[in-house]
Design a protein around this nucleic acid. Structure first.
Lengths: 242, 242
DNA sequence: GTATACTAACTTGTATACAAGTATACTTGA
DNA sequence: TCAAGTATACTTGTATACAAGTTAGTATAC
């Protein structure tokens, strides 16, 4: 069931997006938030109706979501595959894998411009905290890791990130929104950890990098767990199956 | 320019494919083979005409190719980005990355069923050599690595493979065809190397794994280089730009 | 009551139509 | 000859139409 009266994805992130991308973003975040339950069968016509568009952009959206493993395109509709904790762990496997790879490459190049860019982003994150802007914080957080990855010029590492990015985005977005409501105080820890990243890259210190990578992972993993529980509690009251 | 009178992609691999996938496969291999030159602008209408279909499946195909970084979708057409040697090196970076990851996981599980499956595939490869079936050999080669990767149950490692697979397929296919024409004798080395893979997994020997991984890489890299030179020489005589 | 066959309402895949925007080439003016 | 403006022929994005196939439900025959 698509709750189109209550959009979860920030409108302002969609300024340059096509109709298909908009739909993909909204359906994606609703799947990840658990609003659309696992096992739900989405049909092109139904989605087209819900979003008041034709099947063409819906089709595009479903293809996108399928490439992200969020739905499986079958003969009669797209079956929703919600993220499990196993999936999230696996996503972070990949993130650690590629960020470690990127770090190894960064070690043998001039990282000064990158460090400067990353510092800027951390400052932005601080401002986002000050103004309690969860969405902006999530955006900067994502941008931070993206900037590191783009720090080396590597087409296929970029490709992996490009595929991971949308899900990460929704995940971080939802998690940050909840965190801003629940426990704002531990954002200092997030900032600290990002600073640790920067230090690791700047000092080209493998151990420090590993440490901050896993730190970050544990941190997010914990939040995700919380998100999961909250979401599931919420949904029990909210979701009325067709 | 699309030479549709001379299809490079094996028809029999397309039995279950949609029109869009067919077009993607054919255009992909023509880009990788250098038949469609880098910088060429492909328009949906033109491709639809060439393949005698409507724009819908062509659109689907172009989206696919864009996700593989083979074309870049711009306002006025899809610009072809041929593979450079750098790209191919980077692809093998990723392959080594994920296959190493997979190996580490395999170490802590029962690999007997996998070993059996891999042995079967190597036998198939031998038969393919005996009957000089380059396409079948390429297919089995690809299947070999795919089987290893599917040996661990990991959604996002699978995702990476799914994204890499089409390009690898074309690359290996072209390279094997040429190799069958030029130097059939060194296929025994390829077989040997695959046997080495199996041994490494079976004995859970990290060093052996690393060795065979890089062996395989060097081997293919070398072939690719040859392919490149041949293809470029060929194209100089063949390609007549509109 | 049960099983089988048929109908009707869905599904996707592909083709076509239409709208909005862009680049190029030609025409017209000086 | 050169410049500027307009017209035309492209491009993509979205909507709609049509065809082929699947599923489910109902009605009918036994």
């Amino acid at each position: 069931m698509v709750l189109d009266q209550e959009r979860l994805y920030p409108e302002k992130w969609l300024v340059r997006a096509s109709t298909g991308e908009r739909i993909a973003c909204e359906v994606r975040i609703q799947i990840i938030a658990g609003v659309i339950e696992s096992g739900t069968v989405l049909s092109e016509n139904k989605l087209a109706n819900d979003f008041d568009v034709s099947r063409s952009p819906v089709r595009e959206a479903l293809k996108l979501l399928a490439s992200e493993n969020l739905v499986r395109l079958e003969r009669m509709g797209a079956v929703v595959h919600a993220l499990t904790e196993k999936h999230i762990t696996e996503m972070y496997d990949v993130r650690i894998l590629i960020e470690t790879f990127v770090f190894e490459r960064l070690v043998s190049q001039n990282v000064n411009p990158l460090i400067k860019e990353l510092s800027k982003i951390v400052q932005m994150m601080k401002v986002a905290i000050d103004y309690s802007d969860a969405d902006e914080f999530a955006h900067q957080d994502l941008l931070f890791h993206e900037t590191i990855i783009q720090g080396i010029d590597h087409a296929y590492i970029s490709m992996i990130w490009k595929n991971l990015r949308p899900i990460m985005e929704s995940l971080i977005l939802l998690s940050m929104r909840q965190r801003f409501r629940a426990n704002v105080e531990d954002f200092s820890r997030v900032i600290e950890n990002h600073q640790l990243y920067i230090d690791a890259i700047n000092q080209k210190d493998r151990q420090l990098m590993n440490q901050s990578l896993h730190h970050n992972f544990d941190d997010v993993q914990q939040t995700i767990d919380q998100l999961w529980r909250t979401q599931q509690t919420l949904n029990k009251g909210e979701v009325t199956n067709d």
